[in-house]
Design a protein around this nucleic acid. Structure first.
Lengths: 351, 351
DNA sequence: CTGAAAGCGCTTACAG
DNA sequence: CTGAAAGCGCTTACAG
């Protein structure tokens, strides 16, 4: 076992004081090129790693991260999960001088994204974590961050043509692809399959479209005409809209054998079928209470999950590793695509 | 934001020196009852939390954990995962003075468990993590640990009637139950289902029996006679043994519609069917290379996984939290029951 | 451009 | 039984 090498060791070898070593370590100038390169060599040679414990103990300066994500209306809301992930990371990093300021916007009101983003900037964060849900607003915000050279990471989804240092999110395409596989595996007969979007501004919800793409891609690749697949978009009165869509297509609810809902609103579509003659195979997203209830009842068969809590904590740790540890971090962090059923839900997230 | 309170603050309030405060903090005597209770009150009142950073920086004493698990014959072996989980934890905790000594026994040779356990004891560990695979040997070992009052945690499986301070493992029963659900969901027709044990000493492999139990329980609860389920035990020449079993039962390989193999040997059973007329729905365990290959080919449909790497690292952290942080740790740590398919395998374990 | 000194919050002998 | 002092590895003014 190699002995841990210290600043003192480097100073000794170089014949300088530890102060000087510290100056080159943190590249804060005031060192002659000669001694600088000499010290740098020794550092490299000895593969010196600073003791983070001692470093943060001695340093009084703190680093501030700011987060921006949708407000969780209550504790059961999906967005309470990333939030508690951030809290968890905060507790782990607080002794290292990390401060986290959190800002929340209203999911329904994209202008609140901008006002919260403006507030956020006032705290002069060293780095930012955001969920870029409101696409347009997020783009203009990240442009501002770019100007100020404040590094940022995404959680939940990804904004093309922006410059985050990293992101933590699920691959929407692949989760849709997997959903198709599940439906395919569960519906043997030449069945009718519904892909249902329950969303207001579908064109602005990039990840829902990607999930759809993945779903259709599966059946394309399979090159089987076994299934008849219909796509439905609803947003207001789910009940009525589904009914009228089915009427247009010309099928009865009980003829449907598989359903894929592209987001956590799967419970509303599931309830529609539950209250009728027949329960088709249903696959949707996310462990929110309504969905959990229907999963346990056996109405919903699979929920695809994305470890929202881990997304929050991991994103913060990425920021920490980048800014404090000065490590190079992975740019693409895809979360696992978790399959939750009635049978394994009680063990999900347990450790 | 409350100011972090320090030993010094307590000492000031109590009108004593920090040395005395430290004595009551660590309960190392040499303090009069009077001052002790006075200080204790102040500690409680102020809800003092020691600064772990400063504490481990100042402390030169190190703590040693020992681990005992099966040897991974190569890097792809299942047991290389818990091992690398332990290594990961070591790297995170090394600055806190944690030393980890690892010992490995031969899976096939249960006597090697005892000889390694004896070696382990010689390093006088402060705590032990073990995979209690060799049941009898593990029981006598834990008895010794109990005598020496060395705390221990299990990974992988659980030994009834012993006294670990905690364990990290998957619920075998529930994973078998889930396997049944998958097979049920995937085989619509009135099919023939095989439960296959590929194992030498089945009676000594408690978790395989529990998986079986869970599997049958599912169909019991379902109260449907739709499926005919047969149980097969093989161990040597898989090929031949499966064939002869099927002959006894009186069915052809191509009549089988679903297969559940109770461990990671699922690849051998899958290969049997792959090389024949028909590929039934196949569910098994663990991401070892042979299984991954067959999963990606579409021969195996689902692999149930149990985060072996996390098991290793989590177990070490439990030990750390218990011994160093003096926190009370959770005794039961069930890992999630992960469902891996061709479609989501690339994202498993990614973050 | 460089070094010496104080201090971060805690632990550990040591002196009394 | 109690206190004063040195030290863990680093950072941060400050003096020269």
């Amino acid at each position: 076992m190699k002995k841990k090498i210290r600043i003192k060791d480097i100073a000794l070898r170089a014949g300088v004081s530890i102060g000087t070593v510290d100056r080159v370590l943190h590249d804060r100038g005031e060192v002659s090129d000669d001694t600088k390169s000499k010290i740098q060599h020794i550092i490299d040679e000895l593969d010196y790693r600073p003791n983070l414990l001692a470093s943060s103990l001695a340093s009084k300066k703190s680093i501030v991260f700011a987060t921006l994500m949708p407000k969780a209306s209550n504790q059961d809301n999906y967005w309470s999960k990333p939030h508690s992930g951030v809290e968890k990371a905060r507790n782990q990093l607080i002794e290292y001088g990390v401060q986290i300021k959190q800002y929340f916007f209203e999911m329904e009101d994209s202008s609140s994204f901008s006002t919260e983003a403006a507030k956020l900037l006032l705290c002069e964060p060293d780095a930012v974590m955001l969920a870029p849900c409101a696409k347009r607003e997020a783009i203009s915000f990240t442009r501002k961050l770019d100007e100020l050279t404040i590094p940022y990471v995404y959680i939940d989804s990804i904004l093309p043509d922006t410059h985050p240092i990293s992101f933590v999110a699920q691959s929407s395409f692949d989760s849709g692809f997997l959903a198709a596989k599940l439906i395919d595996w569960g519906t043997r007969e030449e069945g009718i399959i519904l892909l249902i979007h329950v969303a207001k501004e579908l064109d602005n919800a990039n990840h829902l479209l990607l999930r759809e793409k993945g779903f259709f891609r599966y059946f394309e690749l399979k090159k089987s005409d076994k299934h008849r697949i219909f796509k439905i978009e609803v947003s207001g009165n789910i009940e009525q809209e589904i009914l009228s869509h089915l009427k247009v297509i010309g099928i009865e609810p009980c003829e449907v054998s598989g359903i894929f809902v592209t987001n956590s609103k799967v419970h509303s579509a599931a309830s529609f079928f539950k209250s009728r003659c027949y329960t088709p195979k249903i696959v949707g997203y996310d462990l929110i209470p309504e969905n959990i209830g229907l999963l346990k009842e056996g109405v919903i068969d699979f929920l695809i999950c994305q470890k929202p809590e881990l997304q929050g904590s991991h994103a913060i740790h990425l920021l920490f590793d980048h800014l404090v540890k000065k490590e190079k971090i992975r740019k693409e962090n895809y979360t696992s695509i978790d399959l939750i059923t009635k049978e394994n839900i009680d063990f999900y997230n347990s450790i």
